[in-house]
Nucleic acid binder design. Structure first.
Lengths: 339, 339
DNA sequence: CAACAAAGGGTAATCGATTGCACAATATTT
DNA sequence: AAATATTGTGCAATCGATTACCCTTTGTTG
């Protein structure tokens, strides 16, 4: 096995007795090089085990073939699937991916922006932290024309392309599903209302209620951070009340889970006394007992689509860069609403 | 806001009427530069919003400040936590992280190796794919002295440092726990026996059995791929048998889950008729019904430790690079064994 | 056949930071 | 005071690939 240092284009040039520039052009399939020379160069490159030095090339062309990703947390299934989608497509197109986690904190998100900027990424895909209300830090990219695409949790203040799932429809079919099961008082645990996805889920829910002439009761709609703990607090508020709802649509699976656990704790039967629908189809939702009815959204598809958009912008810097792509959602019926 | 192109050290040099090399040295805190000059350079750098161009620096020093990570799949909680640990430490030390997924396939793993090599990473952290039996591809790194650290699923053929959890002890306490609960015939669903972790879990289990004078029955020990489907097949084999075990220790939580689901399907009560213990403490194990007793292993800690080792090797290329670090495991008692 | 165009390829500058070597200015030793 | 050491900087080459510009050949046109 070779242990020598790396082969460069000049090694190839020397071996073929031609110049480095010709080698470079041949490898880049430049039209000014004859097919014969190209073939000779390619063969020699293979033979010498040539690996282009991206650093040198990047320095000259000042693009890094790297895209940055900012996500709240990699351990959430939706996001790790999105990453998988992003990586897969990016890699086949010759891009590397750097991932940064904001841990759902605005300050860390700003750090991520700095890190990615310092890494001179060619473009960025981001899903914003749950408590981000100020988007100044993203101007680091937009001001310098570094392509930026949001997915899932998007930001409407900045004029960028975005990929979302049909949260509105998700909220709508979740609520309508509960209605079809004969539920009469359907509560909603929503997420922070500065985030588009939670606004839309709520609006979808409201539309379904209106469509079926349900009375909209303010006390049945709670805003939450959608964590495990917060979910339990919400569950208490709703279920300990004398006029408790007979169904809850939660804006994510984690809080739906909290509800199920608390309902079991106080002896409510699910779905008989209380039907529950979540959102996301996290892997555990299938295994909880009772298993959780939820809205499926494909992280993989969202990630792939976002990457497609981003690479389009990077490679072909013109055109409309404020596209919004909405991907479909699907109701997954399980025990928690099966009555 | 500035939209101008990036500031270079020469801009700083010009502004202070000194040479670029002095600026470079000042920024790198070289001892040959006076404190006064250093301060002037730093202030000017800040003022001009200077961001070092990593590409140029990397080209010259031929190190990329990037480490590569190869994991089976990011969507497994253990691995995504490991990534979190890796990223966190790497970032604070000024390194970027590139993640590649092998999807548990040897061929893809070899691709990952190529990708990372082409990216000229300074070092690699890897956990091998479940079906990898040939380790030739890793020679790409070892032959060229690119530091390599394995974690969790390690490779003993290659002489590298590694970080593992105490799988042996995990297997031991899992089995001993079942024994303490009065189980008499304890089966084991193990993983592929070319992987260290599964060998050790099995050996730990065997040791516990021997210690308590249990007869070791070959038919109670099954090797499996530990997928959802394979787990079900194993469950069938064990539970449909006339002489079925009264406890099963599975080498991961997924197959433990399969067992629980199948046991419920055929009307066995857990833990009364069958006690179950898994391994990993995947998030869902807490929510399954009955909740799953399992062995906790901290992906975060493993990732952090591995990164620590790797960065040590990278920065200080001498010393012993065949260290093995074993991290502790812990039994998490839940319903599935509570009798 | 002269005049010119196209094709194929070489030369050298360039990207931005690093670093071996040289050297001036100051400090210390003899 | 001369000789030597120390400190602080500058010069220029370098990392490897790209590319603007120039120079041959060979082919085409009138």
């Amino acid at each position: 096995m070779k242990k020598e240092s790396h082969t460069t284009i000049h090694d190839i040039a020397r071996a073929l007795n031609i110049s480095g520039s010709t080698v470079s052009r041949a490898l880049n399939d430049n039209s000014r090089i004859s097919d014969k020379t190209k073939k000779a160069v390619r063969d020699m490159a293979r033979q010498l085990g040539y690996q282009p030095n991206a650093l040198a090339s990047n320095l000259r062309t000042s693009c890094t073939n790297t895209i940055g990703v900012i996500i709240p947390r990699i351990s959430r299934y939706f996001f790790s699937s999105a990453i998988t989608g992003i990586e897969e497509l990016a890699r086949t197109r010759g891009y590397n991916v750097i991932i940064c986690q904001s841990n759902d904190q605005e300050a860390r998100e700003a750090d991520c922006v700095q890190t990615l900027f310092a890494s001179r990424v060619d473009g960025v895909i981001s899903s914003i932290a749950i408590n981000t209300e100020n988007f100044e830090h993203y101007k680091t990219f937009t001001d310098r024309n570094i392509p930026l695409v949001f997915f899932d949790r998007v930001c409407d203040e900045l004029e960028t392309s975005q990929v979302v799932v049909d949260d509105f429809k998700g909220g709508f079919i979740a609520a309508e599903h509960l209605i079809s099961k004969g539920c009469k008082r359907i509560a909603h645990i929503g997420g922070p209302q500065h985030l588009n996805i939670y606004i839309n889920r709520l609006q979808g829910y409201l539309k379904a209620l209106r469509k079926h002439n349900f009375e909209i009761e303010e006390e049945l709609i709670i805003e939450s951070l959608l964590t495990r703990e917060d979910g339990k607090a919400c569950a208490k508020k709703l279920l300990d009340s004398p006029r408790r709802p007979d169904a809850i649509f939660a804006a994510n699976d984690i809080s739906a889970l909290s509800i199920i656990l608390y309902a079991k704790e106080i002896g409510l039967r699910i779905p008989e006394d209380l039907a529950v629908v979540g959102f996301s189809n996290e892997p555990f939702s299938e295994y909880v007992s009772p298993s959780l009815t939820t809205i499926e959204q494909s992280g993989f598809d969202v990630g792939t689509k976002a990457t497609e958009l981003l690479l389009d912008i990077i490679t072909n810097k013109s055109g409309n860069h404020q596209e919004t792509i909405v991907l479909p959602v699907k109701l997954i019926e399980r025990e928690s609403s099966n009555r």
